[in-house]
Design a binder for these strands. Structure first.
Lengths: 242, 242
DNA sequence: CGGTTTATTGAATATTCTCAAGTAATGTGG
DNA sequence: CCACATTACTTGAGAATATTCAATAAACCG
């Protein structure tokens, strides 16, 4: 029923650091099952102390948090290979919520086993830290976007970023990739209003730089978009998977 | 000359997770020296692959990154106990720069030893991951600030946040703590212009909520400030030190 | 004592937001 | 199959928030 780690659909993609046979076996032992959720389903709640950790296998989702005034900050888009629940895993409490945007398949790990996991598998422990560092790196860039880029640069940055991630995951063909989010999700990720996000997307579309409609993102010249976005790193290094 | 880990000035403070004798010994072996830098000195450069990792012992600093257009995003203020260089340590490259704002004393660790450190000391490896998760948690909140709070709420959030950190470090007395940064640093942290930051600070001052001048932050009623800031968590959990 | 940095304030400008209205696509119950 | 509700996207216009420009004051430094 559940996918075997040795047949993990993610491992083949060149974006990920290769795993030894032994590491795959370790992950297989740590994995306690597979979770399939429908679009719209909540996976983790902000403030919760979930007994489970996940790796996204298929589908897409959102990390977000709500403020008291009802405004929502989208922290990141979740794509296959993303690790979910680290904060609860080590600190005991999630700083944000996670929900599925499309139907998703998730690898399920047991939070109570994380300590023995660390003790017995230093390579895997290092991989967990690596992923945390990757996320920290991303959030620093996102912060710079909200703080220092204007709307056009922000939207260009977000689209280019997700496009580059899509490329690494072999989701891009003919300059197109699936991006099944709403404009409101992007607006909440960039701290822009829906209206302004919409108009900014229209500007990029009119300039023939990026088109995003019906859940499909299409970028003809990624370098031009990255240029508008002032992205310093248009290549993304390998990272491990769990 | 160099501070012995067993006499570390940080460990006494109740904010930090206690360390066993054995853990202290491990840190002592991992520690290769102490670095003292003057105010204004660079410590790590964005994009660099530093051979060293640090823990701040005394003094304060800044994490920041520059964009191509010359704008600067301050990612975080560095206070004693902060771990510096994790990204280079695991990914091989820093996503931001670090510089000293005051004279600083830093514990120095050897990056090349990090792997054996992980292998031989799972508890310490777990602590590193914990710190990474704490930073990720903070950055998520910072993102929500830049994205969803207005200037008054943002400034209130930043001041309350640093004040609470100061409390944990026993730096607060009589509602006052040292905060030796410039208004420009705060502005760059919140994605606001210097002028607007200045005027917003004046508003908080006039309302007798928070005063920050001559490098000293003074908050009479932290709950009121946290309230304006819509902070959900006014208590901060313990965390490990390295 | 000039030169530099930091903080402060006013005024004009620009960006972004909110409000409002309308379209298109989809789904539901009668 | 149609009327109606719902959701996502689009566009225009006025309002609010924040930026830029400019000038001044205060503190610090060599």
């Amino acid at each position: 029923m559940a996918t075997k780690c040795k047949h993990c659909p993610l491992r083949g993609r060149d974006h990920f650091v290769p795993m030894s046979q032994e590491e795959v076996n370790v992950m297989q032992r740590f994995k306690v099952g597979e979770l399939i959720v429908d679009a719209g389903a909540p996976i983790l709640m902000q403030g919760s102390n979930s007994p489970q950790l996940f790796t996204a296998l298929h589908g897409m989702g959102l990390r977000y948090k709500y403020l008291e005034n009802g405004k929502r900050q989208v922290v990141n888009f979740i794509l296959p290979g993303d690790f979910i629940g680290l904060q609860a895993g080590v600190m005991g409490e999630m700083g944000h919520s996670v929900e599925a945007t499309t139907k998703m398949t998730l690898c399920v790990f047991n939070r109570s086993a994380i300590w023995s996991f660390f003790k017995d598998n230093p390579e895997r422990a290092f991989a967990v830290t690596w992923l945390a560092a990757v996320e920290e790196h991303f959030l620093g860039n996102a912060l710079a976007t909200l703080g220092q880029r204007n709307a056009l640069q922000s939207v260009a940055w977000a689209l280019a970023k997700v496009y580059l991630r899509g490329e690494q995951l072999n989701m891009v063909s003919n300059g197109q990739m699936p991006l099944p989010f709403r404009q409101q999700d992007l607006a909440d990720a960039l701290g822009l209003s829906l209206v302004h996000t919409n108009k900014t997307l229209a500007r990029l579309r009119n300039r023939q730089l990026a088109q995003w409609s019906d859940g499909v993102l299409s970028i003809a010249d990624i370098d031009k978009v990255a240029d508008i976005a002032m992205m310093d790193e248009t290549s993304v290094p390998q990272r491990p998977i769990l």
